[in-house]
């Protein structure tokens, strides 16, 4: 049974924090830190959920999300988007691109955990 999460994020400290929180809750966590080949990693690992940062080197999180939504097999994959740009228009863009959930940094650990549980269960 795969309770796996792929974290696509370029900030090492944030990767470490999210990994710690999810591992403690029993999730298997994979991480990736640039945008170029992120979609390939998603297809290869086929996680139960993707946590996706917006500002990534090489390719934006929105573009990666569109790739995920456009491809067979990953169409319905739950994607939790994280962004440090807390503006309204960022949320709109994310929703239009097909984000399952959108969260602004900084977040509380419980919030992330709840969201991940909900998205995978639902």
């Amino acid at each position: 049974m795969g309770r796996s999460v792929l974290v696509i994020e370029d900030e090492p400290n944030i990767i470490e924090a999210i990994s710690f929180i999810l591992s403690r809750d029993g999730w298997s966590v994979a991480t990736h830190s640039n945008g170029h080949d992120a979609f390939g990693v998603v297809q290869d690992t086929m996680p139960d959920l993707v946590i996706l940062d917006v500002m990534l080197p090489g390719k934006t999180g929105y573009d990666i999300l569109r790739e995920i939504r456009g491809a067979e097999g990953t169409q319905a994959l739950p994607v939790l988007m994280l962004t440090a740009k807390g503006q309204v228009k960022d949320r709109e863009i994310a929703e239009r691109a097909g984000a399952s959930r959108f969260m602004t940094k900084p977040f509380s650990n419980a919030e992330v955990l709840d969201a991940v549980r909900e998205l995978v269960a639902g």
Partner: peptide
């Protein structure tokens, strides 16, 4: 502003996440 926000939120995210970890675990 968007960039400033991003640059401020990123370290704050780490600070908040780890301080919660220290507090809760």
């Amino acid at each position: 502003l968007s960039q400033v926000s991003h640059e401020l939120r990123t370290p704050m995210t780490s600070i908040r996440a780890f301080s919660e970890i220290l507090r809760d675990s």
